[in-house]
Simulated assay, not measured.
Amino acid sequence: MKENFVVVAEDRADQGKGASRRLRREGKVPAVVYGGTEAPLSISLSANELGKHLKVEAFYSHLLTLKLGDNSQQIVLKDLQRHPVTGYAIHADFQRVLADKLLHMQVPLHFKGADIAPGVKTGGGIVEHHLNQVQVECLPKDLPEFIEVDLSALELNGSVHLSELPLPEGVTLVELKHDNDQPVVSIHLPRGAIEEEAAEAAEAAAAAEAAGEKKDEKKK
């Protein structure tokens, strides 16, 4: 079941770094709303409430309800700035959503079946994640909270590419529109095991070569 996120905000008239610092001292986060058919709007949010939302993964790839006084509208989170030391949100950008306009959003990948994948269970391999999220294009009503990646049948040295991801109806991947079918996840042997195999192969080759030289000497 999808979550329903409500972002309660207030108008803010003051602009600039000084005004933003004052807001943060008051426990608020400055933000801006743009897009749609209206002009950009400067707002402020409760730092505490925003912090709670940001702990939920779905908040980042979900249609949100912005409540400003008696008015409500749908938005999505497009950018978030955090303090480099504390990690707390210090500014947010939201985009208005129009029902008939395509969205470009980053959606997280959820991986399952790694523990039973043949490449891991019997092949001794490890899972390497090349991507943890993908950019999708879709109408707001089709926006998925996440895309699931099933590894349960993945063999050693196998990989899953973007073109193999199961996409909901109405959702496309932006990278595939640019013919960039990159790998999402793969299973391979650990580096140490690969180096050990290479060393063993080199030793075997050297032994075979030495045996061949001895045979040649005996013939002479």
Rank of each mutant, 00 (worst) to 15 (best):
A13T: 15
G16Y: 06
A89L: 04
E49L: 03
V85L: 08
K55S: 02
A39F: 03
A206K: 14
P183Y: 01
A205C: 07
L64Q: 11
E217H: 07
G113C: 13
L102E: 15
E209A: 08
V29Q: 10
V29N: 06
K141L: 08
V160H: 09
S186A: 14
L66I: 03
I90Y: 04
E57R: 08
T65F: 01
G119S: 05
P40A: 09
A19R: 14
A206T: 09
G36E: 00
G36C: 00
V149C: 14
F146Y: 14
Q15H: 12
N48S: 12
I147T: 01
E137P: 00
K67W: 04
Y34P: 09
I43C: 06
A199K: 14
M1W: 10
V107P: 06
K101R: 15
P166N: 15
G69M: 08
D93A: 02
V97S: 05
I126L: 09
G27H: 13
P40T: 08
N180V: 11
L162F: 00
I116V: 15
T172E: 06
S61A: 02
N4V: 07
H188Q: 13
H62F: 04
K214D: 13
R191Y: 07
G113L: 14
L66Y: 04
V149S: 11
K141D: 10
V136S: 07
A202T: 08
H91W: 02
L151I: 09
A47E: 10
F94A: 11
K55G: 01
V136A: 04
T122R: 06
L63K: 08
A198S: 10
V174S: 00
I90H: 04
E164I: 03
L156R: 11
L173G: 01
E3G: 07
Q15M: 12
S72R: 15
G18Y: 00
S61R: 01
L154P: 06
A204Q: 14
S42D: 13
Y60M: 00
A205K: 15
E217W: 10
K17N: 15
P140Q: 01
L54S: 00
L68G: 04
N180Y: 05
V32E: 00
L165P: 03
S44D: 07
A206Q: 12
K67C: 03
G170N: 04
V33K: 09
G124W: 02
S42I: 05
V134L: 00
S44C: 09
L165F: 02
S159H: 15
V120G: 05
Q106N: 12
I187A: 03
K177T: 10
V97K: 02
S186N: 13
K78D: 03
G27D: 12
A58H: 11
V56Y: 05
N4Y: 11
V136W: 05
D93Q: 01
N132G: 12
K177M: 15
G192W: 08
V107E: 10
L77E: 01
Q106V: 06
Y88R: 15
E128T: 15
E195W: 03
I90T: 13
V120I: 07
I187H: 02
G123V: 04
E200P: 05
E209S: 10
G27C: 09
L151F: 11
Y88E: 14
E195K: 15
T37G: 05
V6L: 12
V120M: 03
K219Q: 11
